[in-house]
Amino acid sequence: MHLRAAKEILHMEAWLHRAEEIVARGPDAYHCDDILQEAGDSLMIKLGESANRLARLGVVAPPGVDWALAIANRNFVVHQYDQINRSMTWATLATDLPRWRVALAPLIAAAAAEIRRSPP
C-alpha cells in the first residue's frame, strides 16, 4: 500500500470514530444541536475528499463502501448546504458510516501496518 493511501485511510478511521461520537449522543441531540450537525457535515466533507484521494491513488473500495457516493455526498454538502436534509445526514452518520468502519477494517489494518513499516 502506498504511504499516502495509508495515511488517508487512517484519517478516515479517525473521522469514522468522531462520527460514532456524534451518533452516541442520539438523534434528538443531533437534530436539536446546530454544532453537532455542522460537525457531522464536516466529517462527511472530509470523508468524501479522502475517498476522492483514495480513488485517484487506485485504492479499490471494499464491498459496502462506495467512493463515488462519498464524493457526491461531499459535493452536495459543500455546494447545496441550503438543501441539506437532517434526517438523511443522521441516517448517513448512524447507519452508513458504521458499516463503512466494518468494511474498511482490513484496509485500516493494512494502513496501520504500512505506517509502522515506514521510516520516520
Rank of each mutant, 00 (worst) to 15 (best):
P98H: 04
Q83W: 01
I9T: 07
G58W: 08
D28G: 03
A110H: 07
L16S: 04
H17V: 10
A94L: 02
D66W: 00
S87G: 12
S87A: 11
D33A: 01
S50C: 12
A112Y: 01
Q80P: 00
T89P: 04
L47Y: 04
H2D: 15
A70N: 10
W67A: 03
Y81C: 07
E114N: 08
R117I: 00
L93N: 03
L57F: 11
A14Q: 12
M12C: 13
A14W: 07
L57Q: 14
C32N: 15
I22Y: 02
E38S: 11
W90A: 07
W67M: 03
K7S: 13
T95K: 11
L97P: 03
W100F: 14
G58D: 07
S118W: 08
A39C: 07
R117K: 14
P120E: 12
W100V: 08
L69T: 12
Y81S: 12
S87N: 13
A51E: 05
L69Q: 14
I84M: 10
E49G: 15
M44D: 01
V78E: 15
A109D: 13
P62H: 05
L69P: 00
A112V: 00
R53P: 00
D66E: 12
R101W: 00
P63E: 13
F76L: 12
I9V: 14
Q37F: 04
G48S: 05
N85W: 01
S87E: 13
D82W: 12
A39K: 10
N73F: 06
S87Q: 14
L36H: 03
M88A: 11
A29C: 04
F76R: 13
A103W: 00
K7Q: 13
R56F: 00
I71R: 15
I84H: 04
D34W: 05
R99F: 01
